[in-house]
Design a binder for these strands. Sequence first.
DNA 1: CGTTTGCGTGATACCTTCTAACGAAACTTT
DNA 2: AAAGTTTCGTTAGAAGGTATCACGCAAACG
Lengths: 225, 225
Amino acid sequence: MGKSDTATPRQRYRAQVRTEIKEHAWKQIAEAGASALSLNAIAKQMGVSGPALYRYFAGRDELITELIRDAYRSLADAVHAVAATGADPAGIAHVLREWARTDPQRYFLIYGTPVPGYHAPEEITGISQEIMADLLTACAALEPDAPATPFADHLADHRDWAGGHPAPPAALHRVLTFWTRLHGVLSLELAGHFAGMGFDPARLYEAEVDALRAPLGRAPGGLRS
Amino acid sequence: MGKSDTATPRQRYRAQVRTEIKEHAWKQIAEAGASALSLNAIAKQMGVSGPALYRYFAGRDELITELIRDAYRSLADAVHAVAATGADPAGIAHVLREWARTDPQRYFLIYGTPVPGYHAPEEITGISQEIMADLLTACAALEPDAPATPFADHLADHRDWAGGHPAPPAALHRVLTFWTRLHGVLSLELAGHFAGMGFDPARLYEAEVDALRAPLGRAPGGLRS
DNA sequence: CGTTTGCGTGATACCTTCTAACGAAACTTT
DNA sequence: AAAGTTTCGTTAGAAGGTATCACGCAAACG
């Protein structure tokens, strides 16, 4: 299956060990977070000596970078799978929550506390734009002639990040709002900030998904003017 | 001034060294994040031996816990200072953003990636409720007779976290939305996820603050029914 | 079947947190 | 003021982490 047939035995072995290392890494991350990831512990679990892993990853940082890349890839695939069925933003939102709750630490690897000085490789920003493209398509289809908000006007002049996607400014605004609002609920929920509060986070998430169906500007019945 | 006069010299000295340690800790956190905080490095900067710090903090965890507590305290004070002037939620939102941008790592210490297994001490949940109380008062005053949303009905049965505050269910919903939406924009901005995108994060934040003025339910002009 | 390539090892250097034992300084009590 | 007690800072060391190095050996290749 795939290109593993054409590769040399050395390459096949190398790839297999690399994925095995990453599997153990994910297990550690899920249990104790990314900060507790230890090459030494992985080596011990695999029954090999510590320095052996340096044949496969230049160091802890490269391993984590690879894990981040895989996490982005997984999220992009999950989003694209549902977007390809013609799902609306609400459908994507539910897939996003499922994906995040499957492995909270994987979500935090992408959207969690950044390490000062770390810069994502070019490849990752590419995957990020894949996700944006699916979101833009879904949001543009939802309400083709939504009224342009003041912020949407600002976005009309700063739409480089959309990568040439033909979505109208209102859709750009909606995508960013989709992203920030759902991330707001999700990250606080996964971080346990709602823990002792009693209410059901799923309903708050649902309320925000519902709100995203409404037009984004100041609502007509709103306060002041 | 204060109680430092009544304390014994030993207690005064101890408190002074503790705050000095914490100042160096904040400097390190601001520069390299909480994960890079090193007791040894602090000791070196203070011109003192490593284990000396253990006279003042039981360990790295206790120091970080104390920093988290101070961060919460600082945020609660900032919010309360502006809330006491009768500011509306938008005013609090601006103070929140100022506070967060002053020291992003301090914000992430509170709302960033959680360490699995860590549980916040009782005192911190108390400070958290102080903030909630100010938010509830501001939101309840904004729109006293806002229509109750489905989620607000759910909150009416789960309002323990409000700590007996007399705010109506619609205000409870508004407070949670205030929290999650602003955190969504802020955390992504501070984490640098908007970095190469070109638009102005302040305007997105402002757009969300504006949206919080509108009623929370499905807007009348919304899609589907 | 020889050569080459690459893998895993132990030794080593340098970090980290944290404990233990000791000497000195400072505060308290007599 | 002198003696006693508490507390502080030190050095030494254990345990564990990242990462580099030289070495031996086995597997792949020609």
